[in-house]
Amino acid sequence: MISLRKARVADAIAIGAVHVAAWRSAYPGILPDAFLARMSVSRQAAFYDAAIRGGTGVTVATASGMDVPVGSGPRIIGFTTAGRARHIEIAGRRLGEGEVETLYVLDDWRERGVGRRLMRAAAAHLVDVGCRSAFLWVLRDNPSRWFYQRLGGRSVAEQTIQIAGQSVQQTAFVWDPIEQLLAASPQAS
């Protein structure tokens, strides 16, 4: 069974492990191999520990029951973080009030509706903190970028950022009004 819940501080290490695994899976050939190899679960865990303690909306997806080996407890298989937008405008264009900062799901759990459920949970959190629109950034060459379009996101801006000393393009997807994301149907993507 796959369930969603608000993250706890004790989840930080598992969240960090999902983050590192997702980047190592999604970004070979996009980001430098040496950078991906040096990624640290403990550094990511420290970041997410601080985010959870600081009130960022962190939601985890857990698998349990028949979806995990007999005798093991619930396992974190994905997560999302969301909060008020860090930057509302880029190049004079308004993006949105709320930002989905991260969405990562382990490879073995993709194509099972986990990402859609996490995105709707992020949108619900943003509504709870008063946001009427949402956006996120995704690396343009990320093979999963079309997922956001299938959820009704509109590509509205691009920008170049630096990761590990390398220039990469990222694309902003927007849901305005945010209800478009809240209503995203599991069957639609």
Rank of each mutant, 00 (worst) to 15 (best):
L151E: 06
P177H: 12
F147D: 02
G29Q: 09
G65N: 09
I15G: 02
L4T: 10
Q166V: 12
A172V: 01
A164D: 09
S42D: 15
I76G: 00
L118T: 11
R75E: 12
E158T: 14
A12D: 14
Y148E: 04
G113T: 10
T102R: 12
I30E: 12
D141C: 04
A50M: 08
A124T: 13
L126S: 00
A124M: 02
D49H: 15
L95T: 06
A51G: 04
W146Y: 14
A10D: 15
Q166N: 08
I15Y: 04
Y48P: 03
P143T: 05
V18C: 14
T59P: 10
L31V: 07
I52E: 06
D11V: 05
I15P: 10
G96Q: 08
I77Q: 03
D108N: 04
R116D: 04
F79Q: 04
D176Y: 04
V174C: 07
P143D: 02
A51T: 06
M66W: 08
A34V: 10
L31N: 07
V60R: 04
W109G: 00
F135R: 02
E99K: 06
W175H: 00
I30D: 10
W137D: 01
Y48Q: 02
L151W: 03
R150Q: 11
S25E: 12
G115V: 08
V68N: 01
Y27E: 06
A21V: 04
P143N: 02
N142E: 07
G113W: 14
D67P: 00
L36R: 00
A34K: 13
I13G: 12
V20H: 13
L36Y: 03
P186W: 13
E101I: 07
W175T: 00
D128G: 15
